[in-house]
Design a protein around this nucleic acid. Structure first.
Lengths: 219, 219
DNA sequence: GTCTATAAGAAGATAGAC
DNA sequence: GTCTATCTTCTTATAGAC
């Protein structure tokens, strides 16, 4: 990897651990394996490094969003997929979302950095909210809406249903960001949450019971 | 208010807005109306001011916790209160919790400060989690457990039920901490959430309860 | 307890050789 | 592009008068 990009990588790691103000240009340089003054050949100053990180994140985020839109637009395909969704698939849906957020290295570091710096700059707070709250609710809402339209779920308010699905996942995420040692516990809670969510929102208790029996067999 | 305590107040305000590293001793002094060197007659150094804030928060928190325990211990009184809880009262319960967290000045500033500083010191992360996640879940879980034991709510897993009740509130709280202009929207969502929560967990929909009762007894 | 003056040191950034 | 040497500025903290 070229030096210019390695600087961003190491800076992001340090910013996510200590926050912008507590990271010194010399720290970043040391990690890259150069001296501080050399760093100024690649970026104008410390702030420019931070800005470049935000810019790269925006780029990645746009990419992701546009790829999601392509899938989301073709609702006929997604509807087919979610028509016969089982409880296990719903668990997998939540679990995948959770594990992506927590294990994807770039996402994790970027989220931590935003958490620290969000009150320093309102724009960062807005980016955080969009990326980890609003857009996820919007996307998950579309999926759950599809499932509901298939008559599997109750005809409650879909927005609130999506909140009920995602808010616990978000909470477990904030727990694991701060106390990574609780990840195993969080995964158990996550599964219990989604199974209970499914029981509550299922239109037919019998379906739930059948799924349970099936689940038991499949173990 | 005496100077020593005013220093804590102004420091907390500044730390919650900019983070420890971006607040200069001279900033705190200016707000108090003295010069920086005078501040050192009250506190040994900048870190001592921060530590004193944490200490005072611990004191307040202990007070609160012990008063909660006193009420919580006398379950017979609480049970009486929650025996005939209505949906509106449940909405009020969630709304009060939300508004306390968001409008209590000390709590709000302290939570913001912890949010910024949590990754700098693991102890702070633990304090944050205890105060805004674990202890709230524990207390709300006790209340909802009482209500459930009165036969009003479904006999689902109470821990998960509590997560379903509080996680959306927590999420709305993080939204409003970052984007205060969304408070009105958040309050509407909060009410819709709790009413839907109540519908989902209410037993009086015609649901086959006999098997579940058996399950509950056999635990 | 508050002030002015100032020491001590940290950290960002530049100059100029290689 | 990287280095060493150095400048500059900012910030904490102390000294000592009042």
């Amino acid at each position: 990897m070229d030096t210019k990009h390695r600087i961003l990588e190491e800076a992001l790691t340090l910013f996510s651990e200590k926050g912008y103000a507590n990271v010194y240009v010399a720290d970043i340089a040391e990690r890259v394996g150069i001296k501080a003054p050399s760093l100024y050949k690649h970026y104008k100053n410390k702030q420019a490094i931070f800005d470049a990180i935000i810019e790269e994140m925006n780029r990645r985020f746009m990419e992701q969003a546009s790829s999601l839109k392509i899938n989301g637009a073709d609702a006929s395909i997604d509807a087919e997929i979610y028509k016969h969704i089982s409880e296990d698939q719903l668990v997998a849906l939540g679990r995948d979302l959770f594990l992506y957020f927590i294990h994807d290295d770039y996402t994790r570091r970027f989220r931590k950095m935003l958490t620290i710096e969000q009150f320093h700059d309102k724009k960062l707070a807005d980016v955080y909210m969009k990326q980890y709250v609003d857009d996820v609710l919007s996307y998950q809402g579309m999926l759950l809406g599809l499932i509901a339209s298939q008559g599997i779920l109750k005809t409650e308010n879909v927005e609130i249903m999506t909140l009920h699905f995602y808010a616990p996942i978000y909470m477990l995420l904030t727990i694991c960001d701060r106390e990574p040692e609780r990840e195993a516990e969080a995964l158990k809670t996550l599964e219990a949450h989604i199974r209970q969510f499914n029981r509550l929102y299922s239109r037919d208790e019998k379906i739930v019971q059948d799924n349970k029996k099936k689940l038991w067999r499949d173990r």
